[in-house]
Amino acid sequence: MEWKQFFTPIKNMDTEEARAYMAEHEEGTYTLLDVRQLGEYENSRIPGATLIPLPQLSDRLGELDPEKPVITY
């Protein structure tokens, strides 16, 4: 078997880029989406992040505002 790319192209940000993006943009103009599990979210998270654990994401996409950029972690 040979692995090859089967990802949908996405833009990746490192921590500093994400921090800079949030500093430069007003609250409410973007969505911070936390796709980790509940326990991880409760333990620590970026303030204001919305939790949708990855296994639930395909069923709950309607909860996201399609007009806003989404930063996912």
């Binding site: 692995w3 790319q5 089967f6 949908t8």
Partner: peptide, 8 residues
């Protein structure tokens, strides 16, 4: 991963 992406 590899270099090829499914384009749809």
């Amino acid at each position: 991963m590899g270099m090829v992406t499914l384009m749809g």
